[in-house]
């Protein structure tokens, strides 16, 4: 009953849309009723329930990707008011309006805000970002990891392959084959692991080929943009050091 007397507060969205991977993008404006504690995802859900533009005309519901809704899966990454970040942790109360949503164009756009992050998983495969423990017999327990190392390695393990660092990087684009900061940091993580360390040269070799670590141009946008606060530039510099050492060791046949 009180609803009819309260002045209705609204939230404005300007969303960049694209119908197919190859079609031209266009923008549409939406104005939806405000509710307390909204985030960008709940705003998108509201548009999905009632897909009407600001001018009152109908439109197709906006497509987006999301999963965990607690900033650990990385699926809902998009460009919000110019900055790449997760839509689930983007609170409407803290955003300037109108809220502009765009897909992260560094990746192929599937539809509207949905992008294809496959290149990131390809990068993880390329650098062998895993620990091989399978054998034809029980290999037994591996060596222990020092607690001091575990503490910083844990920070690196927070990477959720969300793609924000690639979107922020000026060297990840169509003219450049740079693998991106995320996979380099994962090499540091798996090379720090006492069992993973046994295959560290394979991972370094992978980064010393076309489109590897040399693609980093030190703009350091990645570390400023990472939603999990991963020290990406420290990881890149540490792997620069390891690849340099590896290069000279190989030349000298050590």
């Amino acid at each position: 009953m009180a609803d009819t007397t309260v002045a209705t507060k609204t939230v404005k969205f300007i969303i960049t849309r694209q119908d197919t991977p190859d079609s031209k993008p266009y923008t549409e404006e939406f104005e939806i009723p405000y509710r307390p504690n909204m985030n960008v995802i709940s705003g998108l859900m509201e548009i999905q329930r009632n897909p009407k533009k600001t001018d009152g005309s109908n439109t197709a519901p906006v497509c987006w990707d999301s999963n965990c809704l607690e900033e650990v899966c990385g699926a809902c990454s998009m460009v919000i008011n110019g900055k790449p970040r997760q839509a689930c942790s983007a609170l409407v109360d803290k955003l300037e309006q109108p809220i502009r949503l765009e897909p992260m164009r560094t990746f192929p756009v599937v539809r509207d805000l949905v992008i294809n992050r496959e290149r990131m998983f390809g990068a993880l495969k390329r650098v062998k970002a895993w620990i091989p423990i399978d054998g034809t017999y029980d290999l037994g327990p591996g060596p222990r990891m020092a607690e001091t190392k575990r503490q910083w390695a844990y920070e690196l393990s927070k990477c959720m392959t969300c793609g924000v660092c690639l979107e922020a990087c000026p060297n990840v684009n169509d003219r450049n084959s740079f693998i991106g900061p995320a996979a380099i940091s994962q090499v540091r993580l798996f090379n720090a692991h006492p069992t993973g360390e046994m295959n560290k040269e394979e991972r370094l070799d992978a980064l010393m080929t076309d489109g590897g670590i040399e693609g980093c141009g030190n703009s350091q946008n990645c570390v400023r943009s990472c939603p999990k606060g991963i020290p990406l530039t420290t990881s890149i510099a540490a792997i620069n050091k390891d690849t340099t050492k590896h290069l000279f060791k190989k030349w000298l046949g050590m």
């Binding site: 000026p170 060297n171 684009n173 703009s219 350091q220």
Partner: peptide, 22 residues
């Protein structure tokens, strides 16, 4: 060639190091 391979996104990311990159 390296310069050709780079984008400049100082408009979106106004950080000192990003300016230095460009």
């Amino acid at each position: 060639y390296v310069a050709y391979q780079s984008d400049s996104n100082t408009g979106r990311f106004k950080y000192g190091r990003n300016w230095a990159f460009t």
